[in-house]
Nucleic acid binder design. Structure first.
Lengths: 265, 265
DNA sequence: CGAGTTATTGATTGTTCTCAAGGTTAGTGG
DNA sequence: CCACTAACCTTGAGAACAATCAATAACTCG
C-alpha cells in the first residue's frame, strides 16, 4: 500500500523536473524517461532536517520539490552554505565507487526526494539510456561548477551589496523555468540563510537589503523575491548566467602576457 | 623534426604526472598508459601568458609542469583566482559537446602542456581505456569539487589568518606527492597572487604573513613555503584534506532537525 | 493568544581596505 | 662589477566596511 502510493506519487510528478537533473529533456530517449518515471519517492524531509551528514556515504537522490542547502559547520558554530539544491538537482549521482559527501545536506523547506538508484544502475549497464544519462550528468556538472565559481567570485571580490544582487539574479534563473524568467519568484531563504551563503552577518544582510529596497532594486518579503530593475542589478554585479554564450573566438592556447597590473584589490 | 622532438619530450615525461589527471595509476591499464605516453607536448606558455580566455572553447589539455591559475576579471580590475592548475591537472576533458570556458586560464610560472585530444577520442570509442578514463575523471572531478568547496569555506567564513593557513595546507597536499607530504615545498605564488585567491588586499596578506612568521607557523620566501607546525596550522583552520575518510556511519537519509541555533555569523 | 522564529534598530568595536611611500631583490646591459 | 630597471615586499596612517552585542518589533503557526 505505502510503496504503491509513493510510487504513484512519483509517477504523477512532472517528469520535466526529473529531466532537469540531466540538464533538460533534449538528450533523453524513451527508455531513460521510463526509468525516471519509475523512480520511487522517499519520505519527505521536513524543514530543518538533515538529509545527509558530512562524511556519510551519499545515496543517489533527486530533489523534486522544495529547497535544500549544501552546508558545513566549523567547530565554533560558524556555518557556510555552499549552494542550494532546487527541484531537478541531484545528489550522489557520480559514477565512481561509493564515496563520502564532503558537505552536509539540510532541508530548508520541506523537501521531496526520489531514490535515483535505478539511474545509477542504468549507467552501469549497456543500453541507450546509459549514454544519455552520462551526457546529461556531464552537462549538469558543468552548470554545477559554474554555480560554485560564481559563488567564489561573490565571496572573494564582491561587496555585500553586490553579493546580494548577484545571488538573487542567480536564484532567479534557477527558480523560474519560464522564458523569460519572472521578476518575482518564490524564494524561501531567511536573512540568516542569506548571511550563511554570502559570508556576512545577519545584521549586515538586513541593512543591505534595506538599502536595496530603498534603491528600488529588489525586495524580499513573505517568501518571495521581487527584482525590480534587472538591468541595474546586472550592471551592479556583472552577473552572467549560464546563458552567456556570446563572445569568445577560436581555440587559442597561448597569447600575450595579461598578468601585469591587473589587480585592483 | 619539431614534431618528433616534442613527442620525444612527452615520452620522457614522467607518466605518473599524466596519470594524476585520472586520480592516479590504479585504474589505468596498458592501453590507457600507452595513450598517455603518446600525448604530444604543446609550446610551453611563459609566466603571465594567457593559456585560455574566458568564453573561449577549451581544448583538452594536461599540465605536466608549472603552475597556472583559473581566473576572472571584473570590469573595474578586481581579480579573482578560483584555483590553481598544477602538474597532473587537466582542462577541458569533459565528455560533453565542446563548451566555452567559464573562466580564463593564465600561466603563473612557465607551464608545459600536452594536448589531451587523444584521450577524448579514446573516451568516445569502445575499448578498455574508455571506462578507465571515465572513472578516473570522475574521481578527479570529485577532488576538484572538494577544492572549490574548500575555497568557498575559506572566503565565506574564515578570517584572513585562517585563510592563509588553510590554503597553504591545501597546496602542500598537492605539491608533495611523497608520503607524508614534506613541510617545505616549492610554492611560486607572490603575495599578489595570494591576495587574489584569498579575496584580500596585498597589503593585508603581507601583514598576516608577517604575523604567521612571528607565530612560527609558516614562512614563505624565495619561492618556497615552510610549514613549521602542521598540527597548530590544522587546528587553527580546521583543514581536512581529501584524505579525511574517518567518521561517517551508515547511509542516512533523514534525521532530526539540525538548523536551529547553528549560526554564529 | 502565545511561543518561537524572523526582522529591525542603535551603539560600538574590529578587521580589512586604500592610498602613498620607501625598501629589497633579481635580472640586464654596459 | 656596477648602474639601472622592474617586480616584489614592507610600512604607516586614515577611512570604510562589516561584525558584534544587545534590545525591541513583527511575523507565523498551532
Amino acid at each position: 500500500m505505502q510503496a504503491q502510493s509513493t510510487q504513484r506519487w512519483a509517477r504523477n510528478a512532472n517528469h520535466e523536473v526529473l529531466a532537469q537533473a540531466f540538464a533538460g529533456l533534449d538528450g533523453l530517449g524513451e527508455e531513460a524517461v521510463e526509468i525516471l518515471l519509475g523512480l520511487k519517492a522517499l519520505a519527505p524531509a521536513a524543514a530543518g532536517q538533515l538529509i545527509l551528514a558530512e562524511h556519510d556515504f551519499s545515496r543517489p537522490l533527486i530533489v523534486v520539490k522544495g529547497w535544500a542547502a549544501r552546508v558545513r559547520w566549523l567547530s565554533d558554530g560558524r556555518r557556510q552554505i555552499f549552494d542550494f539544491l532546487l527541484p531537478g538537482d541531484a545528489l550522489g549521482l557520480g559514477r565512481g565507487a561509493d564515496h563520502r559527501s564532503p558537505v552536509a545536506v539540510v532541508a530548508i523547506t520541506a523537501v521531496h526526494l526520489v531514490d535515483a538508484q535505478p539511474v545509477r544502475q542504468a549507467m552501469q549497464q549497456q543500453g541507450p539510456a546509459r549514454v544519455e544519462f552520462i551526457d546529461g550528468l556531464d552537462e549538469k556538472a558543468r552548470l554545477d561548477e559554474l554555480r560554485l565559481l560564481n559563488q567564489i567570485q561573490r565571496l572573494g571580490r564582491h561587496s555585500a551589496y553586490e553579493r546580494i544582487c548577484h545571488l538573487l539574479l542567480d536564484l532567479r534563473e534557477r527558480c523560474g523555468r519560464s522564458d523569460p524568467a519572472p521578476t518575482v519568484f518564490e524564494m524561501p531563504l531567511t536573512q540568516e540563510c542569506l548571511s550563511d551563503v554570502l559570508g556576512l552577518s545577519v545584521v549586515h544582510v538586513n541593512r543591505v537589503l534595506q538599502q536595496l529596497r530603498r534603491d528600488r532594486l529588489l525586495e524580499i518579503r513573505g517568501g518571495f523575491a521581487a527584482l525590480n530593475d534587472l538591468q541595474a542589478l546586472q550592471d551592479i554585479c556583472e552577473f552572467y548566467g549560464p546563458t552567456k554564450r556570446e563572445l569568445g573566438s577560436q581555440i587559442r592556447v597561448v597569447n600575450g602576457p595579461v598578468w601585469a597590473g591587473a589587480s585592483r584589490s
